[in-house]
Design a protein around this nucleic acid. Structure first.
Length: 204
DNA sequence: CCACGGATTGGCT
DNA sequence: GCCAATCCGTGGA
């Protein structure tokens, strides 16, 4: 049987805590999407935190709009946005209701439903073994592989469609910290967190 | 109504 | 390493 059913999910209590704590503790847990019988799953290996209260790089910094309103809700919801005319990115809403805080999932290590992910992303077979490291190593790639689009924005992550399953970091794994990638404001905040030396990171 | 540019990616040089 | 693709959310007129 698969490895992701009948395991403990992250609950509301987990999500409704301070942003950076949740961002760091999300590392190692498993993102799961269920489409009928089909399960897609991957361990979160890279995230970034965004805080609309203090952080001018956050979508929510300039206030509530139709696009970002999900981010102002209580923790435990999925926030999906569309960018560069091409890509979706998914976030875990967290922190305090009304602040507009969320954690961007930047990369996962695929663990289940990998054939489906390959089809979703490349519409073909892999050319070579190394290409697996290009499957979910970036926020747009994760959404492509999991077929997560903005219609999924607002989904409750404690529900049955898209959810997170508890999983601990391995003993040898260490958490790395860096500045966030691809932004033009608040560029110096050290709010990117990742599992050091994991081969599925968006950057080495 | 219109113009701008982005929490990215992949293809080409 | 550089840059175009591509579209829609956002903000100003």
């Amino acid at each position: 049987m698969n490895t992701t059913m009948n395991k403990t999910r992250l609950n509301k209590k987990f999500y409704n805590r301070e942003l950076l704590t949740v961002a760091i503790e999300l590392l190692g847990n498993i993102l799961v999407k269920k489409d009928g019988n089909k399960i897609l799953a991957g361990r979160i290996v890279e995230v970034e935190a965004y805080n609309g209260d203090t952080d001018s790089a956050a979508h929510t910094f300039t206030g509530k709009t139709k696009r970002n309103e999900v981010m102002f809700n209580e923790g435990g919801l999925l926030y999906v946005y569309f960018t560069y005319g091409a890509h979706h990115c998914c976030n875990v809403v967290t922190g305090i209701e009304g602040k507009g805080t969320a954690v961007l999932i930047r990369a996962v290590e695929p663990s289940e439903g990998i054939d489906t992910m390959i089809q979703n992303r490349f519409k073909r077979e892999l050319f070579n073994a190394k290409e697996i490291f290009n499957l979910t190593s970036g926020p747009g790639k994760v959404c492509s592989a999991f077929s997560i689009i903005k219609n999924h924005s607002g989904i409750d992550l404690t529900g049955n469609k898209i959810y997170l399953v508890k999983s601990k970091l391995k003993k040898h794994e260490k958490i790395g910290v860096s500045k966030r990638i691809g932004i033009t404001r608040s560029v110096d905040l050290p709010w990117r967190f990742f599992i050091e030396d994991n081969p599925y990171l968006s950057r080495k």
